[in-house]
Nucleic acid binder design. Structure first.
Lengths: 217, 217
DNA sequence: AGATGATGTTCACAGTGTCCACATGACATC
DNA sequence: GATGTCATGTGGACACTGTGAACATCATCT
């Protein structure tokens, strides 16, 4: 009988979460492509095929990892937004603007400090709706989108942002900041230094906010 | 002796370009991940290792494919820009605005009609400067950026866009449109229908242009 | 206690990138 | 024209991946 050198019991206990945890670690340094099933099981001290009792295939594991990464992103945004509260100065509109900027800044900070996880969130195919899942029209909006939506709603209430088609402001703001992050990570904006990033990001946000405010109506 | 059923000569003639061509075909349907070295050699009717006489490794082949994809993107943008000329109506500023919109529209059209190639352009690591290459500060700006820059310069000359820090307008505009394309292809904006895409894209561009014009100075 | 279903293991296979040694052929030099 | 040299293509091998099928172990319910 092979001595149970590692695990006391034959069963792992909670392989699912263990695999996801390892997967996140691998995604953290290496991006979505580095999430390799066999390596995850190895780190969990388990045979390769054990993973298949918990995930249909590698893609499903990656999907689970993606969810974690997405939540981490949302958390980074939220944290940056809440940090604004401290210096509570200026009009409601000014505060809303500051929080909107913070949302973008948090997004970009996360992209730069956790490029692997950020790339994982937007890994090709990762967003494909699982065939068995319910059609996620808007019901299960992603966590990052919820953070943004909240801030945008405040901005609208404060009169900072125009009350146009619901959700459009979110998409515009998100696109702008996401595009910058993408171009920095995997585009020709390569290793832009941090201060340049912040400078451009601020310009970008200023342009978006001003543009939204002065929209021809 | 194995009859030379296929090639008349033992040598291929131009394996390098053949491999790139096949690589592009694979990237076209399947994205960067679908560019697999062995399959490329197979399609070229050559043994797997023949590729190594022309490319150091798979990444280098992918890099060559990426360059092709990038040029295709630039071409799509250019074509859309030139299509504007036809209806030459309105002031220079209006024309410049139309061309700017066209640039963005071309970008998005390409992303949606050639998602595989588009993803390949921004494949992870693909933009890493080849170790042997010259430092590409600005000298070898990518083809898409050159197209955009030209249009932006015209817009600046026409008074549509403000004469701020050189290149910043380009980055802002590029980020906005690229972000939208990314979110549609690999983000939660999933399979947004074409008309919705155009609607949002136009809003996005309107916001950017208006924002730039009304920038606090 | 015994059956049963969940969880891990083993064995196996196809497919990938890449290394090394060898074969082939184009071309320059005597 | 024979000969040597170098670029190009081949064959075999290895480590690695995802994944399927059959078997082993264990927790739990009756």
């Amino acid at each position: 009988m092979p001595a149970p050198t590692k695990r006391p019991s034959y069963h792992h206990g909670d392989l699912t979460t263990a695999l996801v945890r390892e997967g996140v670690a691998m995604a953290r340094d290496g991006g979505p492509g580095a999430v390799v099933l066999r390596e995850a099981t190895r780190r969990a001290g388990v045979s390769p095929n054990a993973a298949y009792r918990h995930f249909a295939d590698r893609d499903q594991l990656l999907g689970a990892v993606r969810v974690e990464a997405e939540q981490a992103l949302a958390q980074a945004m939220q944290a940056e937004v809440e940090a604004v509260e401290a210096g509570t100065r200026g009009s409601p509109a000014e505060l809303a603007a500051a929080r909107l900027r913070a949302t973008g800044a948090g997004y970009l900070r996360f992209a730069r400090s956790e490029p692997g996880l950020f790339r994982t969130v937007f890994a090709e195919g990762a967003h494909r709706t699982a065939p068995g899942a319910v059609a996620p029209s808007e019901s299960v909006a992603s966590a990052p989108l919820r953070v943004l939506s909240t801030v945008v709603a405040e901005g609208t209430a404060a009169g900072l942002l125009p009350p146009i088609q619901d959700g459009d402001v979110d998409v515009v703001a998100w696109s702008a900041v996401h595009g910058l992050a993408s171009l920095i990570l995997d585009g020709p904006l390569g290793g832009l230094p941090d201060d340049a990033t912040d400078r451009v990001a601020n310009l970008l946000l200023a342009v978006v906010v001003t543009g939204l405010a002065h929209l021809p109506r």
